[in-house]
Nucleic acid binder design. Structure first.
Lengths: 174, 174
DNA sequence: ATAACTGATATCATTTTGAAAGCAGTTGCA
DNA sequence: TGCAACTGCTTTCAAAATGATATCAGTTAT
């Protein structure tokens, strides 16, 4: 255990954990993208390098935000799982998304999930966290209805489909 | 306007703004510490260097999280003010503090504010934000009763006083 | 057999960080 | 009228982090 912290302030300590440009994006892809494997995480929107990804995964494991296990289907495959510590970031993700959506130049398709999370409020976040616990920590059984992640993903695809259609119509009409 | 973003995802864009170890600490000191001047911000718990502080302030100004004005009392003094964009981070600060308090090795005195923010909930955050608007954006008049910042600060000092007393007693009893 | 896939490492140039000292003024006090 | 303390920075330079690219040894499906 390395204890050389700059200060024991909770905000500072939080930033020491994920105050960089990549750690939270990895968590984001696991939470909202359902990614569990190294090669999946490598295909992020933002194009993370493999050495950076390896380094951050190692750090997140050390901190206790992730755990790693073998994939029975492939001897070289590793499965990364979220711990409660990482699942507890869902409300922060929601707030970050809402803030970014309000003040930064987001695209419609990449912010529709944030919009739904904002509209859903704490009740939706709690449900999402329960689903993540079931998925990553085992224990409780399946939940009824479509998962929060599936609902968010469907909304994303709907926007993409509409945009493709609009583009097609605009192109045909020119 | 530089538009070379890694992606238009709201979480990514948020991290491009304050995904580093210092930017949010500066905002924290302005929000919770009431700091408005360069030399005040230089005296942070974590010991930020003057070059880093200057660089971050410049970036925060460019982004639109802060504004800068002259201090009438001193020709070389600058007053930094929060914009609505920065004041809107109060709920994120509250969540970050709550998360850090739960999962990281915080000290009692530096986390008492986070505890009160968590217990106060959204209603307290809104009141705090109103006070910050009055303080940094002008407009609305004074608010009744002690300010949220004063209440948090008083709680901090109470913990410090108690700890000093305990230390004194322990020392006397040895 | 072989091509594609697995989770990483190695290399190396570029960028960022950060401690420390310094600077050109301004202000308050003797 | 001096002079010390204070103002918001800037400069310098070493060390650390970042990140693109190529590569690796082993595994699996065809």
């Amino acid at each position: 255990m390395t204890d050389d912290h700059r200060s024991a302030c909770p905000i500072n300590l939080s930033l020491e954990v994920f105050g960089d440009k990549w750690s939270l994006l990895i968590i984001r892809d696991m939470i909202f993208g359902g990614k569990r494997h190294f090669r999946e995480l490598l295909r992020s929107q933002e194009g993370i390098s493999s050495n950076i990804l390896a380094d951050r995964l190692k750090t997140l494991l050390e901190i206790g935000m992730l755990t790693k296990s073998d994939d029975p289907s492939h001897k070289q495959k590793a499965i990364y799982s979220l711990t409660e510590m990482a699942i507890a970031l869902v409300p922060i993700m929601a707030h970050l998304g809402a803030w970014g959506r309000r003040y930064l130049p987001v695209s419609e398709e990449l912010s529709i999930r944030a919009q739904l999370m904002e509209e859903g409020g704490p009740a939706l976040w709690e449900r999402f966290m329960d689903e993540l616990r079931a998925e990553h920590l085992g224990g409780s059984g399946a939940l009824d209805g479509p998962s929060v992640r599936q609902t968010l993903q469907a909304a994303y695809e709907e926007v993409m489909a509409r945009k493709a259609k609009e583009l097609e119509l605009a192109s045909a009409g020119s």
